[in-house]
Design a protein around this nucleic acid. Structure first.
Length: 306
DNA sequence: AAGACGAAAGTGGTTGA
DNA sequence: TCAACAACTTTCGTCTT
């Protein structure tokens, strides 16, 4: 694992902030994102199918959705397993085996292809393993419900990935997904909405703060600027400036302001580019921030210091 | 000359009748 | 299903540094 990284290659600092949920390692001093993809040790305990009790057990080889046969393969129904089960469970096992056989013949090829594509895109975006798993799970469900029919396989993969990112609060914008998968942004959005609705997946509205670390890193802003931006974000949320607006625009504006305050000025263009919004949007958000929170003083302070 | 600012018109998506 | 609507973008002209 990532024990080889002990200090920040940018500033040499030893204080690194490890965020397991997002799979990011961030330098506390300079804000550089050192490692975006790391092994995730947390376990997924949620139940995915309707029969709760028995399937909660975690025995045998770990099941994974990133292999087309979910890592079960021909293991289902092996005699050694059956000895340990009562009649009821044994019947269930037979049904499972039959089910899997049917599914695998009908859908196997599709899943195999799709999950290869999914892995490709996920690794391109350096997504943590949990997200990849989640996306694979979503895609598998979508295939089983016949939701892929009439849509391109790739777009559903992209939609599943996007949904998985949102659920795990590892924000990637539609633009990034679009670039990585080669699918049009609106197409991803469409299938994303369709799939999540059909599968009854609830998505929390994404939090602007989740974008800050990544944006700040690509702009090479200091850690102070970064945490100031999060602070601004907080008060903006209290002032109800955030609801209904695009989270990326708000994050970008907060970052822009806090860069000004700390004398690390970036142009609106630069911030807009990494955030995937236009300068105009930043200007609008920026204006609102200045009005509602009294930040003018802070900006003037740093100007006088010069 | 480059960046910041703002107005106006256009786009895609949501909502409510 | 359609129209109204808000958020965001594009484009362009003007002002500031």
């Amino acid at each position: 694992m990532a024990t080889s990284i002990k200090k920040c290659p940018e500033c040499g600092s030893l204080s690194l902030n490890i965020n397991r949920e997002k799979g990011e390692v961030i330098c506390k001093d300079c804000g550089l994102v050192i490692e975006e993809k790391m092994v995730d040790f947390s376990q997924e305990w949620r139940e995915f199918d309707s029969d709760d009790g028995e399937s909660k057990r975690r025995t045998g080889a770990p099941m994974t959705y990133t292999q087309y046969d979910q890592g079960i393969g021909t293991e289902v129904g092996r005699k050694a397993d059956l000895y340990q089960l009562g009649n009821k469970d044994r019947n269930k096992f037979f049904r499972l085996r039959k089910w899997q056989y049917r599914i695998s013949t009908a859908i196997e090829r599709n899943l195999k292809l799709a999950l290869a594509e999914l892995k490709r895109v996920a690794s391109y975006l350096k997504l943590p393993k949990t997200v990849e798993e989640e996306a694979a799970r979503i895609y598998t469900l979508a295939v089983q419900r016949g939701l892929v029919r009439g849509r391109s396989m790739e777009s559903v993969v992209a939609g599943a990935l996007y949904a998985a990112c949102r659920r795990h609060e590892v924000p990637r914008t539609l633009d990034e997904l679009s670039e990585a998968s080669g699918i049009e942004k609106k197409e991803i959005g469409r299938t994303y909405r369709f799939v999540t609705r059909e599968l009854g997946i609830t998505i929390l509205p994404s939090n602007p703060a989740d974008y800050i670390a990544r944006f700040a890193s690509s702009l090479k802003l200091s850690a102070e600027t970064q945490s100031k931006a999060v602070e601004i974000l907080d008060s903006a949320q209290n002032a109800e400036l955030t609801s209904g607006r695009g989270p990326t625009g708000i994050a970008a504006a907060a970052l822009y302001v806090s860069a000004l305050i700390h004398g690390e000025k970036r142009t609106q263009r630069e911030v807009a580019d990494v955030a995937g919004v236009t300068e105009v949007t930043i200007r609008n958000r920026y204006k609102e921030l200045l009005e509602k929170l009294n930040l003018e003083k802070e900006i003037k302070k740093t100007k006088k210091k010069k």
